[in-house]
C-alpha cells in the first residue's frame, strides 16, 4: 500500500512540474494561424532542397508560417486558383505539421487534434473536395516523420474541435 502511494505521488509530482510547460505549448498551438498573405501566396517560399528538408522531422519552413515549404508549394500547385480550398488545405497542413513538432504529452496532442478538427471543419465548409488524407501523407512523407507521428499518437485522447470559427481566414 505504501509503495503504491509513493508511486502515485511520484506520478503526480512529475505531472505538476510539467504543467507550466504544457500550458505554454497548448497556447502556442492554438495561436498558430494561417494568414491571408499565406493564402494569397504573398510570401511563398522557394523550393527547398529535398535532402535537407527530409533530414529532420520539422523540415524547412523558410517563411515561418507553420506549413513546411514542400507541403506549402504542393498545396499551391494543387489549388492554383481556388483560394478558399487552398486556405483550408494550408490550415490543415499546418495542424498536421504540429502533430510532428508540437506534441510531447496528452494535453499538447489534444490541442493539436482540436486544431486539426477545426481545420477539418474548415475543409467541410469549402465547396471543393479536398483530399485531407493526401495532405496527411504530404506532411508525414518520410519514415522518420511517419514514425514520429505514430509515436506522438500514443498520447491520443478523447477530444473535439477548437474554437467557434473553423477557418483561420475568410477567403472567398
Amino acid at each position: 500500500m505504501v509503495v503504491g502511494y509513493v508511486l502515485l505521488v511520484i506520478y503526480d509530482v512529475q505531472r505538476l512540474f510539467d504543467i507550466d510547460k504544457t500550458n505554454e505549448a497548448v497556447a502556442a498551438i492554438h495561436a498558430q494561424k494561417i494568414t491571408l498573405a499565406d493564402v494569397q501566396g504573398s510570401n511563398l517560399p522557394p523550393v527547398p532542397d529535398q535532402a535537407e528538408n527530409d533530414a529532420t522531422v520539422a523540415g524547412i519552413d523558410k517563411n515561418n508560417n507553420g506549413v513546411r515549404d514542400d507541403v506549402e508549394l504542393a498545396i499551391f500547385k494543387k489549388y492554383p486558383s481556388d483560394k478558399k480550398a487552398r486556405g483550408a488545405a494550408l490550415q490543415y497542413a499546418s495542424a498536421e505539421q504540429m502533430y510532428l513538432t508540437k506534441v510531447f504529452n496528452t494535453e499538447t496532442w489534444k490541442a493539436v487534434a482540436e486544431e486539426t478538427g477545426r481545420a477539418g471543419l474548415c475543409i467541410l465548409e469549402t465547396e471543393t473536395e479536398i483530399d485531407w488524407e493526401n495532405i496527411q501523407e504530404l506532411v508525414a512523407n518520410t519514415q522518420l516523420r511517419k514514425e514520429t507521428r505514430t509515436k506522438n499518437f500514443e498520447f491520443i485522447t478523447s477530444h473535439g474541435s477548437a474554437g467557434e470559427n473553423p477557418c483561420d481566414t475568410a477567403v472567398n
Partner: peptide, 9 residues
C-alpha cells in the same frame, strides 16, 4: 490510433 482519429473525422 491514427485510424481511430481518422474515423471520427
Amino acid at each position: 490510433r491514427e485510424q481511430a482519429e481518422n474515423s471520427q473525422f
